[in-house]
Structures are given as C-alpha cells and as structure tokens.
Write a protein that binds this DNA or RNA. Structure first.
Length: 153
DNA sequence: GCCAACGTTGGC
DNA sequence: GCCAACGTTGGC
C-alpha cells in the first residue's frame, strides 16, 4: 500500500530522513490507535510513504520515503525521558509500534494542501478531509502518482 | 493564537 | 455504557 505520514519538521524533517541513510529513521511516537493499527497491520516493507510536514511555516508534502523495517515495539514508550513515554507499557505488554522510514526523494517544492485541493482527483484524499487528525493514513496509487506528477509539473 | 474537530477520561 | 468535560491536533 501507499501512505502519508505526518511529521513536525522540527522533530523529524525530510532532510533528517535524507541524512539517516539506508537504515532510515525510527518512526516513533504514534499514539493514536487507528494510526497504530495501520502501522502494525498494514504497513509493509517497501511501501512508499509521502512525507507531510505539519505544524510549521510551510505545511505540505515535502518528499517520498519507503518503509525499511516492519512494525516493532516503539522504544520511546519505555523511555521515561521521552515525551512519548507510556508508563503502562511493559516489556511483556505494550501497545505502541514504530517502523523505519528511509529516504527516496525530496520534492522540488512543498506541495501545499491548497494546491492539492485544486485537483478533483484528490477530493477523497484523507489528508484533505475536514477534521482528519490521523498521522498515518493510506493513499491510493492514483493519488500517489498524481502527487509525484505535481512535483515535476 | 484561534478554533473546529476529534479522542480520551471518568463520574455515574 | 452514556456523555459531559477536558485535552490535543493542526490548518489557517
């Protein structure tokens, strides 16, 4: 499948992913059950991931990554020093998973949500839905291909 | 910083 | 298990 992952660039930007090398970055800190279920059950190796910068000056799609490690226990849930620490997690029983995401490409420009909204083919894109707060969401092949086309347009 | 939308919590 | 109150997300 194909995905959009949201990230705050102050925490993990497309450049950080580019600098992480083939092992990728640890995609940690997902603390929503619906997003967790996608990560755990549906995200597969080599799935392509559009990277979306949120809560920043230039919100939008900034590049492409791919999944290089399947879901495993999110290490941050066990780390009291982490903002993502989850006190109820134990080594035997933990709810939160991480995957690793490696760099594929950085877009020539930030593709804003306003630009995406101009394309009727993207009307059903979850990212554009009102009130959507999922940080991990599926994307159709058509939607992905159109975004990649827009990057080169 | 505003605020709509959604998720979570907790009393009952 | 209902639902009001509260907290968080995240675009604008």
């Amino acid at each position: 499948m194909n995905w959009i992952f949201k990230t705050e660039p102050s925490e993990c930007s497309i450049d950080d992913i580019a600098n992480a090398g083939p092992a990728g970055v640890v995609w940690e800190g997902v603390r929503n059950y619906q997003a967790r279920n996608f990560l755990r059950d549906d995200v597969k190796l080599d799935d392509l991931v559009l990277i979306h910068h949120s809560s920043c000056a230039e919100v939008g799609l900034v590049g492409l990554g791919k999944v290089v490690k399947l879901a495993y226990a999110d290490p941050s849930q066990f780390d009291p020093a982490s903002p993502y620490y989850f006190a109820k997690s134990s080594p035997e029983n933990w709810p939160w998973v991480a995957v690793n995401v490696a760099f594929v490409e950085k877009f020539h420009k930030v593709i804003s949500m306003a630009e995406l909204r101009q394309h009727p083919q993207l009307a059903e894109m979850l990212l554009l839905k009102k009130g959507n707060r999922l940080s991990v969401m599926p994307l159709t092949k058509i939607e992905l291909e159109l975004v990649l086309f827009l990057n080169n347009a």
